[in-house]
Design a protein around this nucleic acid. Structure first.
Lengths: 113, 113
DNA sequence: CGGGATCCAAAGCGATACTG
DNA sequence: CAGTATCGCTTTGGATCCCG
């Protein structure tokens, strides 16, 4: 398999884009920004994702180091997802994206007319 | 075909993520941030993209309203790509992403040790 | 110069069913 | 509760070739 990871770890834009690949990454990061959330709670807040999809996205984000998974050894099982320290620092990006997103939606609505 | 555009135009995160889908969108937007660039020039600055891929990505960004294509009717042909006004406002996001990207790379490098 | 057309392989996503 | 396994479909990206 060809690795195009050449620019990964070099260019901040390529690196960022890789991290944000998942279709739901932004939304998930947003929902984790106010502290740890359990799997089921997360799923309830994201009705458009199935369990399988949510699980995969979380694994991705965990693999990228943005999200931390904490498992409590008990019955019934309890797992909490939260932001790592670098994940928390992503909040800045999230904020600017939220602002821009609103501007964008307004802008596009204007264009329609 | 099922439209999952339900949240598009409602949630700024979903909207943003759609706009940033392309594998090279961030990089392209970055290269356009200092003024109009011709197609070939853009391609020279992005050696990892083939013409076909660059063309598709540009079409995508143009369709999303972030990029403007200006064609000069002359020989030899000349086409310039630049940021629309909403595309220019994306600069804020790009800046925060660049900062965070560097932090992220440093962070991940530390983790390696 | 600035693309388009075609084709293919790979990845992504989601539905469904099952599990410790 | 918090997942995993499997599968099919759709979506991308990229290679290659061709064009006004």
């Amino acid at each position: 398999m060809k690795e195009d990871t050449e620019l990964f770890g070099i260019c901040p834009y390529v690196t960022s884009q890789k991290v944000l690949t998942g279709k739901w990454s932004l939304l998930i990061l947003y929902h984790l920004s106010n502290g740890p959330v359990r799997f089921n709670e997360l799923q309830r807040r994201l009705p458009h994702l199935t369990q399988a999809t949510l699980s995969k996205q979380l694994k991705g984000l965990e693999g990228n180091g943005l999200v931390v998974r904490k498992e409590y050894q008990q019955l019934p099982p309890k797992v909490e997802y939260s932001l790592s320290s670098i994940g928390q620092r992503f909040q800045v990006v999230l904020d600017s994206l939220e602002t821009w997103g609103h501007e964008y939606m307004d802008y596009m609505e204007e264009q329609q007319k």
